[in-house]
């Protein structure tokens, strides 16, 4: 059995000095895809932000066999794990969409030929050509959502954590994103309430409950029942 890509062991997440999720154990292998679900305020976003190093946690966070603890470990993790925020405004701070898409590749000093290829691919996948020179703060919510997803793809991280990636999208863009997720060969963690998306993807669902215990269900039959509960 190969080594997991990302592993959480006895992982507890703290907000305002209080544990909101306790003793999570999650193992993700390379290329594996999971959905994280749970009611509003249960701590899905906090879990994701703890993995990125923005929210305090206790327990072990292990990336490719190495523990992630210090600032420099999180730098390495952020290079490998792209995060699409629940609120796209968090990621949109550059003057234009083009600058936004090139922000991360510049930070990571990726070679120009590679950036050029990734950029073209992302722009084509999400039909962004007509938005490239627009100021980011003048986009509609759905357009912002697409750009915030796109600007994580231009540096090609190995894994993606997406927080409500289909929220606010119209039919056409919903399919674009859902298809992209389904076809992607990256390791994926998708946080969502979107039942249609969960059944469309058909992946393993980890359902976070406010009682801080976690159950992992296989998709299909049980899924429907869980969703009714949620």
């Amino acid at each position: 059995m190969t080594e997991p890509f990302l592993e959480l062991r006895n992982f507890s997440v703290y907000r305002g000095g209080r544990a909101i999720l306790t003793n999570l154990n999650i193992v993700l292998h390379r290329g594996e895809k999971i959905v994280i679900a749970g009611v509003n305020g249960v701590g899905k976003t906090s879990l994701a932000e703890a993995i990125l190093g923005f929210v305090p946690f206790k327990g072990e966070l292990i990336l490719e066999g190495k523990p992630v603890k210090e600032k420099k470990d999180f730098k390495i993790l952020r290079r490998k794990v792209g995060y699409v925020f629940q609120n796209p405004d968090n990621q949109l701070f550059m003057p234009t969409v083009r600058d936004e898409l090139l922000f991360a590749p510049k930070n990571y000093k990726l070679p120009e030929e590679i950036v050029e290829k990734l950029f073209q691919k992302v722009v084509n996948t999400f039909n962004l050509t007509h938005l490239l020179d627009r100021p980011t703060f003048k986009l509609s919510f759905g357009q912002k959502r697409l750009v915030s997803l796109a600007c994580v793809l231009t540096y090609d991280p190995e894994m993606l954590i997406l927080d409500e990636p289909t929220n606010g999208l119209d039919r056409e863009n919903w399919f674009k994103v859902a298809e992209f997720l389904k076809k992607s060969d990256k390791t994926l963690m998708v946080i969502t309430h979107d039942r249609e998306l969960i059944s469309f993807l058909g992946w393993r669902v980890i359902y976070l409950s406010s009682l801080s215990f976690v159950t992992s269900y296989p998709p299909k039959e049980e899924l429907k029942e869980n969703l009714r509960k949620g």
Partner: peptide, 20 residues
């Protein structure tokens, strides 16, 4: 805070955040 986290998540170093 949220935007600064967004920058760090996209790999911004201290220099970029400081200038911002």
């Amino acid at each position: 805070k949220d935007i600064l986290e967004g920058m760090f998540a996209l790999g911004a170093g201290n220099r970029v955040v400081r200038n911002y």
